[in-house]
Design a protein around this nucleic acid. Sequence first.
DNA 1: GTAATCACG
DNA 2: GACGTACGTGATTACG
Length: 939
Amino acid sequence: MSGFGKGCHLHLIDGSAFIFRAFHALPPLTRKSDGLPIGAVSGFCNMIFKMVEDNRGPDAPTHVAVIFDKGSHTFRNDLYDKYKANRDEMPEDLRPQIPLTREATRAFNIACIELEGFEADDIIATYAREARERGGRVTIISSDKDLMQLVGGGVEMFDAMKNTRLGPEEVEAKFGVPPDRVIDVQALAGDSVDNIPGAPGIGIKTAAQLINEYGDLDTLLARAEEIRQPKRRQTLIEFADQIRLSRQLVTLDDSVEGLEPLDDLDVREPDAEALMAFLSQMEFRTLTRRIAEKMGVEAPEMPEPGSAAAAAAAGDAPEPAALKAGFDAQGYQTVSDRAALDAWITLIRERGHVAVDTETTSLDEMRAELVGISLAVEPGSACYIPLGHVTGEGDLLGAAERAPGQMAMDEALSMLKPVLEDDAILKIGQNMKYDMKILARVGIDVAPIADTMLMSYALHAGLHGHGMDTLAERYLNHTPIPIKSILGSGKAQVTFDRVPIAEATAYAAEDADITLRLWMLFAPKLGAEHVATVYETLERPLVPVLARMEMAGVKVDRDHLSRMSNAFAQKMAQLEDEIQSLAGRKFNVGSPKQLGEILFDEMSLAGGKKGKTGAYGTGADVLEELAAQGHDLPARVLDWRQISKLKSTYTDALQGHIHPETGRVHTSYVISGATTGRLASTDPNLQNIPVRTEEGRRIREAFVAEKGNVLVSLDYSQIELRILAHIAGIDSLKQAFQDGLDIHAMTASEMFGVPIEGMDPMVRRQAKAINFGVIYGISAFGLANNLRIPRDQARDFIDRYFERFPGIREYMDETVAFAKDTGHVLTLFGRRIHTPEIGAKGPRAGFAQRAAINAPIQGTAADIIRRAMIRVPRAIEGLPARMLLQVHDELLFEVEEGAAEETIARVRAVMEAAAEPAVRLDVPLTVDAGRGPNWAAAH
DNA sequence: GTAATCACG
DNA sequence: GACGTACGTGATTACG
């Protein structure tokens, strides 16, 4: 049979929808030999096979095709930029399976249809229309409601999962209108999955009622004035344009051009050999056997999983247990020509994933120069591509010659670029942010990515660090070649470009190899340990966002800092003189040891306490106590210390961090640095720039906007207390936040029975300290220390607080009990923070318990701002604005002056809604915003 | 390399 | 009844 006409029956299979359903419905299955995720491919093949089997009867299709989506941008994105904008990124386990489902379709000898820039639904609509016009029947194998508008006139749908047919009656039962009015109902009701706005407050029920009453959408909109219900009438009038736009979005395009002719979709018998080859390559044991039986052919030899033969049969698959053994530098290849690199690229394309590691001249991504790239596609099989090595000797000036045996940098990069940017190839790295930044500087935008460091963080936060050496030792029982053995240390240390290529290969290829093995080990664990969502929504998508922020940097006014440094130096010299004359001799004011001796031995002041190291304590609290007793020397030392800190850490050091080319300071965020989910900022730390004192705030004035721009700061108000109110379920606290009250004043009022109006600031301050204490896992000792009150008074405050807010105590007890029971605590978003010390005895028990109480609160706040940051780029797309810094509950932007208000509005909306839809908080999140020429003014 | 100190949320 | 604590970070300096 070939030509399509009357009596013909076309089956259109919605491939993309099916892959997603298979992926989410099935447990994460991986290929035995190398850990390649293949669950969705397996589900897909089973479904195709079932379709083929079921369709041998009298109702058999004469024509069949599997239709896939291709490309992420369609005409709907041009109509509406938020179309499907709330879709999460594709899970990394799924991505490498996408090309395999195409292969599977072809292996079954079924037409595989996709067209760049078109959704599968439009292609299906086009074929369905043509088939109907030519007098044939159509069955659409899908349960997607967006396709239901096509039903009728010989077109039916079939839900392969539920094994049910959908005709016009079923569609009408679902939408309340006949199929030809479905788009009208969808246009009104909207769709949260595809982000179709529709008419606010109108769902399918109301929409159907309206359409049935007025006949169709145009009539309804034209006669909206007649609607009796005032709210509905107003909505339809006000949102008429949005409703029309929604209809455009939901209406399928049934005239897609450039498709394979319908006549060519005729059912063909699969080629047994090709099909068996594909199935055995995927290592589908059961399915291969079943299909072989049906087709009457011999199933290909497929040895038992885990056996030595299994590895051999899979071609160049790894040795059994290869994940934990078989590191062999001999097996690593140095790639120095086109042909060799081509061979690796072919391997990568076959696999759909590759572990990547870059070697550079520095750990500072903004200054590092690319020296080489290593790749690994399966355990034990890795290569290194040297690109910027120089000969070790060099002349006296340090000038060195390019080492022989290397590809030209440009040539290698232009070959790798398509692979590193290919949507269908997963790039696996350990701390991928680093490699992404290095490669971005040579014009390569790496995507999509996986990160073993972040996988470990999602799995093991609180248990140990997540550096590669730690992970290799713990999980692969292997100690990697130490970098020091390659570069040397101290004065003799060289940069990586001076390492001989053979040694560099052994080191670099091993890193890629380890990374790949860790990925294979961790990837299936994410699902099994229930942290896949954390990794996919809070870790992985943050990487490109942070990479962009770090590369943007923030402009710092060097002269401003320099002037402050000079002023500080003078002031310090003056204070030093005063201090030394008060002491009666010269000493190093910066030495706590010497200061302790002066204060407590020579001057015989009371209150000297030696710590465990035998030294006197001279911390700020001790000095403040002495100063309060009227001693001048400690008061001067406090002043000196403050200025010394500001000078050394900020006004001096920050100048050294100004990048010579950009004139800006580029921090680096450590995503897995803090156990709670917070970020850490290093080199320099821009999360602890002074703000609490007047002199400190002047340092923030050095953080400025470029000409014509302003800095915009947005920060969450009281986010941790709000989270506490939600998690512990404290009604009075929740109510106070809903009413927008001053939460510390309200706490004081509840505790001490004083009115909020005209409250003594001291009373409010005490309540504030208690509120913070609660977040930290309050103790009488800690509160007493903080408020400088007797311990029994602190005890009394705490008792009264728990009496007034009994839910807090329950939360604390339950959290500690949970931690003892499971060894971890959870944030609202499922982030897992391990508490290995929770069972400890002695003082460490208290530490662990307070940390366990604090972690879900601090961690949930960290999750929320991460969610906001991930959504920000899309929200400010098109605006002349960039996100520069994150300081735990604050985001800092640099914006062209005219766009400041719009930026504030959009970012505030994102931040305030950041918990949704995953979590619906009982308290509102509110965001304060400011703008100004510098960071101090933006607050 | 570690301890003490102090900057931030 | 004693232990000895507020939670989470990073940079700098002194000192062994």
